[in-house]
Design a protein around this nucleic acid. Structure first.
Length: 140
DNA sequence: GCCAACGTTGGC
DNA sequence: GCCAACGTTGGC
């Protein structure tokens, strides 16, 4: 089982949008970066991911989703499909956001992809140790 | 294949 | 709104 972090802009599609869907499942589409796409394609059913709000007032992790359908081509592509999506289901919506500032304070997370300078990938792998450190924050 | 120009992301 | 960082495009 692998762990991931997936970014979304809350004004476009935030965790509240997902929470309001009847089955709380959404295709994670619109990824237009080859590296991020390759990560999408390597996701397995049951993998979990942090739902991250970006480009907003308080960026940070707002919840946890789980992959319920592995990568399949996005609709409405001509010819050989280039872009793929997975379906994710909301597992947990946090009562409080874990802000980017919070994450930067945790030195166990210094190597986390999302915290590295210049990182812009919308889908990134999360190390199991990093996942646990962040989960521990939640338990507090 | 190189690289300049341009576009996008995303924190601040 | 600014700007650093990165990706993509396209001429050569």
């Amino acid at each position: 089982m692998s762990y991931w972090l997936m970014k979304s802009e809350p004004e476009t599609f935030g965790i509240d949008h997902l929470d309001k869907l009847p089955n709380k499942i959404t295709p994670w589409d619109g990824v237009r970066n080859y590296q991020a796409r390759n990560y999408l394609k390597s996701m397995k059913k049951g993998d979990q991911a942090f739902f991250y709000h970006s480009s907003c007032k308080i960026p940070g992790i707002t919840g946890i989703v789980e992959v319920v359908r592995e990568a399949y081509p996005e609709k409405n592509q001509l010819g050989t499909p280039s872009w793929f999506c997975v379906d994710v289901k909301l597992i947990q919506k946090f009562s409080h956001i874990i802000t980017l500032t919070d994450l930067r304070k945790m030195h166990d997370l210094d190597d986390m992809v999302i915290l590295r300078k210049g990182n812009r990938l919308s889908v990134t792998p999360v190390d199991i140790k990093e996942w646990k450190v962040i989960s521990r924050l939640l338990a507090q």
